[in-house]
Amino acid sequence: MRWAVPEAEFVDPGTLGCQGCGGALSMRLVLKEVGDDAIAVLPACCWSIIDGPWPTHALRIPVFHTAFETAAVVAAGIKAAKRRQGRDTTVIAWAGDGGTFDIGLQALSGAAERNEDILYVCYDNEAYMNTGIQRSSATPRGTWTTTTPDENPEPRIKKDIMGIIAAHRIPYAATATAAYPEDLARKVRTAMEARGGMRFLHILAACPPGWKVAADQAIEVMRRAVRSRVFPLYEVRDGRHYTITYRPEPVLPIEEYLGLQGRFAPFGADPALVAAARREVDDRWAWLEEQHERSLQPATT
């Protein structure tokens, strides 16, 4: 495949990210497409740390740190002010899964419902990693975290954030991961072209300490999430038109995704968990294929 990711860099070296941080890499890739006429809003999340302590910071765009649950609405406020100044600066709300699926969901829903002209990026590492690996509503069933220990792993399936976002009928939403940088870059580009309304990117971001994988396996584990269909790559236009953007062939057995990560140790002790996870993944994929097929049909109205 042709390398289609711009060479420009907007993240300076020396961030405080952990080795192999999927969140740091995601920011680097996203900004390559967004460019420098942008402002980042960071609620409480790993990136509150990664950008570095005052008076240094790693991003070559302005950063506004804000409270945990406010990324979307603070971005909307900044956008309103910039527009009044005659500037079409891209305002990026950059939040983790806790700040998106959980505490920030209300403000996110409000911004999506109003179709605010912002780019919302959720880098999802599937738990509260910055506070030391506590479960969030993005944590998959069967996962170990410090609040869902081995004896009582996460009992509920991961919240369907893309379904929630799609229900708001925003112009563009997509899933992506840094293991597929061309796909990610193209989606950021599409999101930039959809300016004028709300854009949402759901980026799976490996967390070596929280997922209990070696730092040099971070890309591999994100790739396996896609190849096993655990994290399908797709996009949704106007909340209705679905496109699967990558079909893994052959499909990787889910065990090869789960087995790479210490956080999924409870699966080893309970074969029923593996079977349930496989069923969820298959159901989800079948549903996505249906949506994809439906979206190819000419509009009936």
Binding site: F64, T66, T70, V74, A75, A76, G77, I78, A81, A107
Partner: peptide, 10 residues
């Protein structure tokens, strides 16, 4: 929060 963002942008 919206006021905070807008005010920070001037």
């Amino acid at each position: 929060a919206a006021c905070v963002g807008a005010s920070a942008a001037g």
